[in-house]
Design a protein around this nucleic acid. Structure first.
Lengths: 239, 239
DNA sequence: CGCATCTTTGAGACTGCTCAATACAGGTGG
DNA sequence: CCACCTGTATTGAGCAGTCTCAAAGATGCG
């Protein structure tokens, strides 16, 4: 029983404490993270290469969900649209992230390349075989869905209750991958706006304001540096 | 007209096609839905009774997630708060819905009674035993998480991109449980506002406006009738 | 019946949006 | 290598939808 759980840390880039559900007391160890139970890794190994270009579509809302993908390189955006063209981006997925693991027969969102990207594709039939061979993958998939659900719920709080300034700060903090203060923003301002429920102008103005206050430094259009990460973190969560 | 009678309305109140993941071609049969694999039903049977009153807390954001619950009667709200008190309601859960199935060690949201409510409680340890006895429950839990994820993503579109009017229409359509046009709203206007990312005044004004236009009829403060459900559905999704 | 609470309605303010013009960047061809 | 050209980003001015603050009207409970 004491066997430690988190064999799944690399399943998604969301940097959260990972624990196998109901193994309540398992501490997290980095070493166990890369074994064969990692569903994204298993799919990556079994999959076929797929390449898509910038702004090219991987699949659309309503298409039959007959395969899943793991991102190898590049950035993919998932989005939903209203009839008149208003768009909400659900998330950005990058190397190691899994896309398209849906319950229903059709995709409930579209997937497009923010940059050109390479992915690995596994059909649902192959996926079924994989799961039969490694039943423990089922738990991993639940774990994956639960983590994405928690992320979506954090985004509900952001979209429902945070100001433009708080949304930008939250976004920058969320995108901090490594310990350094350098942030890559491969997506356009329009993509950022559609992710944060704002307009492109408000995104631009707010970034300029944060820059003027010395909280961030723009390196290029698509990368910046957090000058005061702590204060930015405070601004992300409070008034 | 096939037998609509959703006998498995108890799995979750979200009225969506249910399908086992990767069983791509499995037709939906009403019969298979009520067997022992229904996770909510399994937990309901194994659980202990819990009662909470109106506005009473079941658990709080940050509390150790050491049990799951199934709602027997009443309505529960799940919510997240910012430091200064701004609140976002994640969802309303009613009879048959499962609450608290979390990956992490701590709950990422609070749960409180909208009305007084009865629930069944199962500890994580009991839950683990249940799953060992019925491994097929694992798939059901994934299916449940996936459905909640899809619902959360629809709400992201609502909060990020819809107008107040569209949000109210979406909410009313979403709450239509049966075929009839009668809608129960057990929650306060404040709860509705915190679910839709609006203020109580905007909720009230918008409902008055829909009433003035003859789209809805107020029966009491907490129940109303859809006078033109089709048009309301259109307003929910378009400009 | 009276009081506390919730809801509705009104008036004015403010955040973020729309429309418009300018600046910048990155790729292309001379 | 640089000038050009197109798409993207920034900045500005005015506007609109939603919020805030305030008061009056319902509702329901003791």
């Amino acid at each position: 029983m004491g066997s430690l759980a988190p064999q799944f840390a690399s399943v998604a880039t969301i940097p959260q404490p990972v624990s196998a559900w109901f193994e309540t007391h398992s501490p997290r160890t980095e070493q166990t993270a890369l074994n064969g139970d990692d569903p994204a890794e298993a799919i990556r190994q079994a999959g076929q290469n797929v390449s898509i270009g910038r702004d090219e579509s991987l699949f659309c809302e309503g298409d039959p969900a007959d395969a899943v993908f793991v991102v190898d390189s590049g950035t993919i955006r998932l989005s939903k649209m209203l009839a008149d063209g208003r768009r909400q981006i659900i998330g950005f997925h990058e190397a190691g992230d899994l896309i398209g693991l849906a319950l229903s027969h059709d995709h409930s969102y579209s997937a497009e390349g923010v940059t050109s990207a390479r992915l690995r594709r596994v059909s649902r039939i192959q996926l079924e075989r994989l799961v039969e061979a490694k039943p423990q993958l089922r738990l991993s998939f639940f774990s994956l869905a639960a983590r994405e659900l928690a992320a979506a719920q954090r985004q509900l709080l952001l979209l429902g209750r945070k100001t433009a300034r708080e949304r930008l700060c939250s976004f920058l903090v969320e995108r901090r991958r490594d310990g350094s203060g350098t942030i890559e923003l491969p997506m356009s301002r329009t993509d950022i706006a559609d992710y944060l429920g704002l307009t492109i102008e408000t995104v631009s103005r707010t970034l300029s304001q944060l820059r003027a206050e010395g909280l961030i430094r723009m390196l290029t259009l698509h990368s910046l540096e957090l000058a005061d990460a702590d204060r930015l973190g405070d601004l992300a969560e409070a008034a």
